[in-house]
Simulated assay, not measured.
Amino acid sequence: MSSIPATSKGAATRDLILDRAYGLACVGGLDGLSIGTLAHAVGMSKSGVFGHFGSREDLQLAVLDEAGDRFVAHVLHPALKARRGLPRLRAIVVAWLDWVRHASDGGCLFVAAVSEFDDRPGPVRDRLVSHEHQWRQELARAIGLAVETGELRPETDQAQVAFEIFAIALVVHHDAGLFGYEPALQRGLRAFERLVASCSVPGTNPQPA
Rank of each mutant, 00 (worst) to 15 (best):
A91H: 03
V161G: 06
R90N: 09
A91R: 03
P123W: 13
D105G: 04
P87Y: 08
F166P: 00
A146K: 07
A112L: 08
L64Q: 03
Y181M: 02
L109E: 02
W99Y: 12
A140V: 07
V72H: 06
V72S: 00
L178G: 03
R153C: 10
L128K: 13
I92H: 07
L152P: 05
F163D: 15
L128Q: 12
V100R: 02
E155A: 15
V63C: 04
W99I: 01
R141V: 09
L86I: 10
A142H: 08
A103D: 15
A95I: 05
V93S: 00
H133R: 15
R125M: 13
V172Y: 02
R141D: 13
W135V: 08
G180F: 06
R84T: 04
I143M: 05
H74W: 09
H77P: 00
L86Y: 06
V94R: 13
G177N: 02
G180R: 04
R83K: 12
W99D: 08
F166Y: 14
P123R: 10
D65H: 04
D119H: 07
H74K: 02
V171L: 07
D98R: 13
A142L: 10
R120H: 14
S104V: 12
R83S: 10
V147N: 01
V75D: 00
F117K: 04
I165K: 06
D65M: 01
R101T: 02
A73D: 05
D119K: 09
E116C: 11
R136L: 11
A142S: 13
A167Q: 14
W99L: 04
R90P: 04
Q137N: 10
S130L: 14
V72I: 11
E148F: 08
H173Q: 07
R90S: 05
V114L: 15
R120K: 11
A146L: 06
D105Q: 10
A113N: 03
V129Q: 04
S104W: 11
W96H: 13
F71A: 06
D126A: 15
A140F: 03
A103R: 13
H77M: 06
G122F: 14
V94T: 13
F117T: 00
F163H: 14
R101K: 13
A103T: 11
F71C: 01
R101I: 05
L178M: 11
H133G: 00
D65A: 02
A82I: 04
G107K: 07
S104L: 12
G144T: 11
R90T: 05
D65G: 03
V93L: 09
R84K: 09
V171I: 09
V93T: 11
A67P: 00
C108Q: 12
G122Q: 12
D126R: 12
L139V: 10
Q134A: 15
E164S: 07
A162I: 03
R127E: 10
V111Q: 02
H174D: 15
L139P: 00
L80A: 08
I168C: 01
R136V: 08
V147R: 05
F166G: 06
L86A: 00
I92C: 04
D65Y: 01
A140E: 06
S104N: 11
T149W: 09
A82K: 04
H74L: 04
G144M: 11
H102A: 13
D175T: 04
V100A: 08
V114M: 11
A167I: 06
Q137A: 15
G150W: 01
D69H: 11
